[in-house]
């Protein structure tokens, strides 16, 4: 498959029919197999020094997120402070990868982060994406202008599910162009894609269109990120790099709340895509409450006693 893909990749988007033929020509996903493999990798036991390493890596991979209608600049500033110094009592605790906010909150966050952590903004009328393309592009441009260096866009699921792949492709293309230097994360919203086959197709579609990251979910739809869906996406980025030489990152988001879950995802990354992806540049967690649990586990490792929610901030 690899050779065919490499020769055809520049050609597949020449027409809707060609794109459909390519996406439907991707091998199908064995659903039971994917579920079982993800479950099996979740049983690995990560202890002591390996666990301490994994916890710190997971903290460095967090996109600390607040996407609420009730967000205020004050709340976003507090979140930025936490992102840079997650555990005020322990200077050895690393910063998180990025802060992820709505476009209106980007001006509040940009001066505080000032390059010390990435600033991601959801755009393109997150989470539904049901606005005209011109509005989506304006949304992206304003976020980038205000200082966001990563853009999380949602794909047009309606178009994808009704088979209008080229429309989705061209939308991603246009958004990528509007991003300029900013990294583009493409949210597939796997909870609405119904099958793993669709997840694989949407992953390839996004990568061919120029995504720097593919992201599972908005966090507003259940189910959000699940291990098997992430497994399928990790396979897609691995195969894509083998075919084209370009490495694309993966970001599961939504529903990852415990350090234990986060470590299971790290195992999944290492065993599926490989150690190259075990870096904040190539794998992220979209999460809010996860960070507190990681910090509590970290404290438990360093002090030898269980910590509690009274010792971390309420976000």
């Amino acid at each position: 498959m690899t050779a065919t893909v490499a020769s055809n990749l520049s050609e597949v988007a020449r027409s809707d029919a060609a794109l459909r033929a390519f996406l439907h020509g991707l091998p199908g996903v064995d659903q039971v197999g994917a579920d079982q493999r993800a479950a099996m990798l979740g049983t690995r036991s990560i202890k002591t020094t390996a666990k301490a390493w994994a916890l710190d890596l997971a903290i460095r991979m967090v996109d600390l997120t607040t996407l609420e209608g009730a967000d205020t600049p004050g709340k976003v500033r507090a979140l930025c402070a936490k992102a840079l110094r997650p555990d005020p009592a322990d200077p050895s605790c690393p910063s998180v990868a990025a802060v992820c906010v709505y476009p209106a909150m980007v001006p509040a966050a940009a001066p505080l982060l000032a390059g010390r952590a990435h600033l991601a903004s959801v755009a393109t009328a997150f989470p539904a994406g049901q606005v005209p393309l011109s509005v989506k592009l304006a949304d992206v441009e304003s976020a980038v202008r205000d200082g966001a260096d990563e853009i999380d866009m949602v794909i047009n699921r309606g178009a994808f599910l009704s088979g209008r792949y080229l429309e989705v492709f061209e939308e991603i293309r246009a958004v990528k162009q509007a991003c300029g230097d900013a990294h583009l994360k493409v949210i597939l919203e796997t909870g609405e894609l119904a099958t793993y086959d669709n997840v694989r197709r949407a992953s390839w579609l996004a990568m061919i269109a120029g995504a720097d990251f593919i992201k599972t979910s908005t966090g507003k739809v259940a189910p959000a990120a699940t291990p098997p869906v992430t497994l399928v996406m990790l396979e897609a980025v691995r195969d894509f790099r083998a075919a084209t030489g370009r490495q694309v990152g993966v970001k599961p988001a939504g529903g990852i709340r415990t350090a234990k879950d986060a470590i299971k995802y790290l195992v999944l990354v290492n065993e599926t895509a490989g150690a190259d992806w075990l870096h904040p540049d190539w794998f992220r967690f979209g999460a809010s409450s996860l960070l507190n649990d990681l910090l509590m586990q970290r404290t438990r490792m360093s002090t030898g006693r269980y910590s509690g929610p009274n010792y971390v901030t309420l976000d």
Partner: peptide, 8 residues
Amino acid sequence: PWLASHMD
């Protein structure tokens, strides 16, 4: 001992 040292 784990209960006695538990911060919660």
